[in-house]
């Protein structure tokens, strides 16, 4: 069974801060999830057709035509801070 994961890595990737007690709780929850996944792995599916998407609908495509978009003012409306027509966010460097 796969229990070998680091809860700190997972919370970093999800960009959420966890307190120590939350980490313990989530560690246990995720272990249970992984147990379920391991149980699924035991099902014999070798004769099954691969179903690659939950929806059987075929993708609808649209013609390459542009239509008017939101006005600049409307697009910026929800932003707490703007500058020279840009959205402003805290410094973000990879």
């Amino acid at each position: 069974m796969t229990k070998d994961f680091n809860i700190d890595d997972i919370s970093n990737l999800a960009s959420i801060h966890l307190e120590e007690n939350e980490k313990l709780k989530l560690q246990k929850d995720l272990e249970i999830v992984l147990e379920h996944v391991d149980a699924l792995k035991n099902i014999d599916v070798k004769d099954e057709k691969i179903d690659i998407h939950p929806l059987s609908k075929i993708l609808e495509l649209r013609e390459d035509e542009s239509t008017p978009s939101l006005s600049h003012e409307d697009a910026m409306k929800n932003s707490p801070e703007t500058k020279d027509g840009h959205f402003v966010v805290p410094p973000s460097i990879e």
Binding site: R62, D64, E65, S66, T67, S69, L70, H72, A75, M76, D84, G85, H86, F87
Partner: peptide
């Protein structure tokens, strides 16, 4: 080089004017 974006009908623009071709 398409007229509109990949998943919406906003026009693909080549401009320095920011945030003028946007939709939800």
């Amino acid at each position: 080089d398409t007229e509109s974006k990949m998943f919406c009908s906003c026009k693909v623009v080549e401009t320095d004017e920011p945030n003028i071709s946007l939709c939800p």
